[in-house]
């Protein structure tokens, strides 16, 4: 019984969107019947085509993920090898930053974008995104580094491996699961982020998914655009659903670890 309610509660709204996206507009407003792919066609042939937003988002997501890892790995490693007290203090600050509502930053970031001419630069968006994801990434990776026995790294030291070699050949392979969890969570965050994308991106063809959806929501281009709305939610949500289904274990462990270890 509880199971049915749970599934209905979680899936119902999503299935309704899928259903709506496949119904002709007339059918949605009461008259008419049948199925159609028109809403998808309309979205994909719009100017710019909806696929554009997905590509932009994937691009920002990937570059932000890489940048986050590039900054978080050395930091987490350093913290895990630093003495107890300074590491705990820094980690506390990092944990506090993780709970900080990012929306408070948008005004300052708006000015940064304006003064440094970073607006409408997709790659530049990685900088604030990486900053916002760093707290979680550092906490997750630090916990993973700390679980590696110190003797293992000392064996590598005696083997004559330098810091980079130790990371590349010994430590990173051993924290691969945590790296995957972190990368996935960062990517999901970037895919979903709205306020900063809203302030940094204004050119239609550079929009990422979230502001593009919001713009569709606010536009009156479509008379009764709900079929297209629904199709947009399906297209925008599908990649995340796919990601979750494929990597459920890594994502779930990352989420729980992140909240508990933080």
């Amino acid at each position: 019984m509880g199971r049915t309610v749970l599934l209905l509660w979680s899936l119902g709204p999503m299935l309704w969107q899928l259903y709506s996206s496949l119904r002709p507009t007339q059918a949605l407003t009461g008259v008419g019947s049948g199925w159609t792919l028109d809403h998808y066609r309309q979205l994909l042939s719009a100017e710019p085509p909806f696929g554009h937003y997905l590509v932009n988002t994937a691009l920002v997501g990937s570059s932000s993920t890489l940048l986050t890892l590039a900054l978080a790995i050395p930091c987490a490693y350093g913290l895990s090898r630093l003495g107890q007290r300074p590491a705990r203090q820094i980690s506390l600050v990092v944990a506090a930053a993780a709970a900080f509502p990012a929306v408070l930053l948008f005004l300052a970031l708006l000015e940064v974008a304006r003064d440094w001419q970073l607006a409408n630069n997709l790659l530049a968006l990685s900088l604030p995104y990486a900053g916002l994801c760093l707290p979680l990434a550092v906490l997750l990776l630090r916990a993973a580094f700390r679980e590696i026995p110190l003797e293992l790294e000392e064996a590598a030291l005696i083997d004559g491996l330098n810091l980079w070699q130790r990371l590349r050949w010994v430590l990173l392979p051993l924290i691969a699961p945590a790296l995957a969890s972190t990368a996935l969570l960062v990517f999901i965050f970037c895919w979903n982020e709205y306020p900063i994308a809203l302030t940094w991106l204004s050119r239609q063809e550079l929009l990422t998914l979230a502001p593009a959806i919001a713009r569709i929501a606010g536009s009156s281009v479509y008379t009764i655009p709900y079929g297209a709305f629904a199709a947009a939610t399906v297209l925008g949500g599908a990649p995340m659903i796919l990601l979750l289904l494929l990597f459920q274990r890594q994502i779930i462990s990352g989420l729980t670890q992140g909240a508990i270890k933080g």
Partner: peptide
């Protein structure tokens, strides 16, 4: 468990747009 987590993974704007349609008057 995975299915239950699906709503969390959806972008908020996507989800908000979806709910706008679900709460639509009268359709």
């Amino acid at each position: 468990r995975t299915i239950t987590l699906l709503p969390w993974a959806l972008p908020t704007t996507v989800m908000a747009l979806g709910w706008r349609w679900i709460f639509n008057d009268p359709y």
